[in-house]
Design a binder for these strands. Structure first.
Lengths: 311, 311
DNA sequence: TTTTGATATGAATTCTATTCATTAATATTT
DNA sequence: AAATATTAATGAATAGAATTCATATCAAAA
């Protein structure tokens, strides 16, 4: 096994390697770069035989990067970042670096990852007017159309002329209980388990709460509700046994690790929700929006546990 | 004209841009990356419409990089170097970073560019035994086969089993005259012009001297010869009117600029020579040899004027 | 053991980069 | 000035390679 005569390495390979590193699995990485698992397998094989080195190693079920793989991943990180940077530079030169990015949040918990992202964005695009559109909005699509916001982050919106849904990621919603809660024995909670509980939610209508919409309502179960604005407030209420909540898995890790609350799967295969960023078609082509989306995905996949790529 | 939704940039584009920067012309760059001029035109067009910016600008006959183009070239430089570096690292990991590189020179003038190259090589491949095989060798191919050298740098050798000719570049051989030499009036020298001159050459047989082999002998002209070991010695003899010489154009620039000697084209379309690096097939696949060849080409194209890519 | 989830592999296919053939434009030569 | 030689751009055709499809293989969990 020896190297071939010219370098076959392309950015595509580096993008794959980066995804592989982030996801720790070939099939997840494939989703991440919008290719099939087979395509990645072939890519990896080509690289391996090119360099005469194995890049990944099967450790039981999971794949692990070898030393060589880690070198290439490090390269990928550097190179892809440099490319992003110069592409931002080019966007500035083509005078497409100005405009506004007013973000409306349908998903309250998303504050968690949005804040650091917005900081980074401000650095990269100093001339884009960045804002958070606060408050609840009954019709976010109308908000986009009327120019009240440039992006809505939330669930998918029905296909509609002039509106694009950019997939972000899929995440699991877990039930959150006080550590001493009687339901702690059950590994998985079902609709019936919520019958006599108080459900603590963000102050939004029922049809915006996945647990109610997809689990409780179909089972004709209508627990009491109590609302709180902030995630920490909800968790505080749960911990002090005022009720139970349902929150994205990623935001819970710290609290669960410190035994402040416990988390349980909802229904057999879990309650999953898909997150999208919706914009006008017009807005979708702006470089800074594209940059916002890719860095949003990148940082989310890098920092949030248990999320999976969409599409 | 707006950006498309995902980055289409690949290393191929960066390699093209780098070549474009080095050569200053689409067709020369095409040769450099072993593609057609058309292919590069299409690549450039794709990039331009992708970024909504022009990358090159036609300044009369020559193409010039725009600001955007320069940014991309800068990126290319950085990225391609980083890739080379990690590929060296990988070669080390696959234990293909040891061995020997003994260089035999058929082309005396090549010392000029070989020395700095060897210094760089030593840095990159500390565990490869690097050497110059000095002296004249009547049968360089045999030298390879018998293990006396690992690379021979010189003209192409006849196709032979087990031997590979790696093309380096094509260069022009110019006649060198003292500034006051009577032939200075002529823009182009022909065989007859050499009839009454003393020809100053390196101490090698006639059939290794392109001027004699391709120009003088066919015209049945046999000037006197005098030899010198070093390029500077030859130039010194020429300057002091002991005769004329024929040397690669690239090594002359400094001396011509300082009016130490003058240079003239030989025959209507010039006397051109092709430079190759020949190795055993076995040696050709070694990573350090490949690295040596690519950096040789890179530094030559970057530093030597008037050379053109082969094949 | 059976089943499930994940990866590897060869063949087929689809896609897209490259070449081919030509036109247009610019420079050089006669 | 006309003619010739270079050089780049462009659309259509081609060739090549990356991806998908369909399976096989493998490890872990039930």
């Amino acid at each position: 096994m020896t190297m071939s005569l010219v370098s076959i390495l392309e950015l595509r390979h580096l993008r794959t390697l980066a995804a592989l590193h982030e996801t720790g699995s070939v099939s997840r990485a494939a989703k991440r770069v919008h290719l099939t698992q087979s395509a990645l397998s072939h890519q990896i094989k080509a690289l391996q035989s090119h360099y005469g080195l194995s890049i990944i190693q099967r450790r039981g079920q999971a794949v692990e990067l070898t030393d060589a793989g880690k070198h290439l991943v490090a390269l990928a990180g550097k190179v892809l970042e440099e490319i992003q940077a110069t592409e931002r530079g080019l966007a500035k030169m083509s005078q497409q670096a100005t405009g506004s990015l007013r973000i409306a949040l349908e998903c309250h918990t998303c504050f968690d990852w949005l804040m650091p992202l917005m900081d980074a964005f401000r650095q990269h695009w100093p001339d884009v007017e960045l804002d958070l559109v606060s408050g609840f909005h009954s019709d976010p699509v109308k908000l986009l159309e009327e120019g009240g916001a440039d992006v809505v982050i939330g669930s998918e919106h029905k296909r509609r002329r002039g509106i694009v849904n950019h997939p972000l990621f899929r995440f699991e919603i877990l039930a959150v209980l006080a550590p001493e809660h009687p339901l702690r024995r059950k590994r998985i909670l079902h609709a019936a388990d919520f019958a006599n509980e108080t459900l603590i939610t963000y102050p939004v209508p029922e049809d915006r709460i996945d647990l109610i919409l997809n689990v409780l309502k179909p089972a004709d179960i209508h627990p009491e509700r109590r609302t709180a604005e902030l995630t920490v407030a909800i968790l505080q209420l749960v911990a002090s046994r005022r009720g139970v909540a349902a929150l994205p898995s990623w935001g819970l890790k710290n609290y669960v690790d410190h035994d402040y609350v416990i988390a349980r799967r909802i229904s057999t295969h879990g309650l999953w929700s898909d997150l999208y960023a919706s914009t006008l078609t017009e807005t979708a082509s702006r470089p800074y929006l594209r940059d916002f989306l890719t860095t949003a995905r990148n940082t989310c996949f890098a920092t949030l546990d248990g999320i999976i790529p969409l599409e």
